[in-house]
Nucleic acid binder design. Structure first.
Lengths: 207, 207
DNA sequence: AAACGGTTAAACTAAATAGTTAAACCATAA
DNA sequence: TTATGGTTTAACTATTTAGTTTAACCGTTT
């Protein structure tokens, strides 16, 4: 109950930095605020991470590693496309409710610095579409799905699932609803989005 | 051919500020860079717009006013839902190709400062969903559309159209494509997205 | 042409902020 | 117990950046 402090400080910094960077972005975040949130002295940030840039990169990698497996889930298991759509929609909306700032953060920082994508593409856990595209082509051939381009379908799936969480304030404004009603609507989407997609691509007419 | 300079400086500032703020956001933008881009002295920015905050607000309003009519087009004309979906998709993707930084900028700054939405909601040009929701309900009743919630449909439409432009670097990364291939894909979406939506909500089975 | 007032520029100020330094602290091992 | 080395702190520095001041400029009006 004494040696924990060492790993602790580094970890406390990372947790605090994740919070602040997610909410304010690289440019908006302040080292002082991160230090305050972590409950430590500002020079600790530099002691452990040398510079704001390096601290940010540690945060970014760590957060991206949280998001990537969520996407891999659609792409690389062995269920049918229909099952994948259902599972992904349900899982992703649950996941993102716990990390509401995450997708916006990733997208924002990738726009600010597109070089990041090259770095994280190196990572073997980086999502790969190949299997998914082949599977779509196969199910089209088998007559399970209407003629469908796998890449466009992938874009549609992530758009429908991610966008409402990226553009939350905009949607709340248009629909004139508060946080509570927004959550209800997102809960509904767990079913409605997958039904929306399946209805569009499936060859089976409902009886 | 001499008096133009007065209006000119103010306009040059606004044009430059729009550029820089869109690309870098409120926190990332620098007054000096805006001045350089406008080709004027930094104190001119303060002379015309008093502070960074006020200049930013002028930019934000002006840019949001560009986006709002695009959304109103879906909501408030007299065509059928199917026509609206087709027109919106086609128009919106053309529009956004000319303003690639716009949606991301609006979304980012609304997340940073959710109070903005209250301000712009005052504006009579602010999109209103009422008519659209009623129309969806009516077409469902008439059997033209499957049972569909107007609000969810609206979210789906804007998600499918806007998200790819918000998350461009992410999508380029996943699909491992360059800017040229991305443009081709977006051009395809003008048809494929509206077909995707119509296939999902329409009651007519294609012969 | 002289005075006036809006416009522009250069130099300056004040505040914020990333990063550094040097010394104190404290647990562990010789 | 004392020496060692990683850890922590407080105070400091350098730089960036928004905003200000003061004077010069220039077209218009009298």
């Amino acid at each position: 109950m004494s040696k924990e402090t060492v790993q602790d400080t580094e970890e406390k910094i990372l947790v605090a930095a994740k919070n602040i960077f997610q909410k304010k972005g690289m440019d908006g975040a302040r080292m002082q605020e991160i230090a305050d949130t972590a409950g430590i002295n500002k020079s600790m940030l530099h002691y452990y991470y040398r510079s704001k840039k390096l601290l940010f990169e540690a945060v970014f990698s760590s957060l991206f590693s949280l998001l990537a497996p969520q996407l891999n889930r659609v792409l690389n298991d062995d269920s049918s496309i229909e099952e994948k759509v259902k599972n992904f929609t349900d899982n992703y909306i649950s996941f993102i409710s716990k990390h509401p700032y995450l997708p916006n953060f990733i997208i924002q920082e990738l726009n600010r610095n597109p070089k990041f994508i090259e770095k994280i593409q190196q990572n073997p856990a980086f999502p790969n579409l190949e299997k998914f595209e082949k599977q779509v082509a196969k199910e089209v051939e088998q007559g399970i799905l209407k003629p469908t381009d796998g890449r466009q379908l992938f874009i549609n799936i992530i758009s429908l699932n991610i966008f409402p969480f990226v553009a939350t304030p905009l949607i709340k404004g248009f629909l004139q609803i508060d946080q509570k009603e927004f959550k209800v609507l997102m809960e509904e989407r767990k079913k409605s989005v997958s039904a929306f997609i399946i209805d569009s691509i499936s060859n089976n007419q409902q009886p």
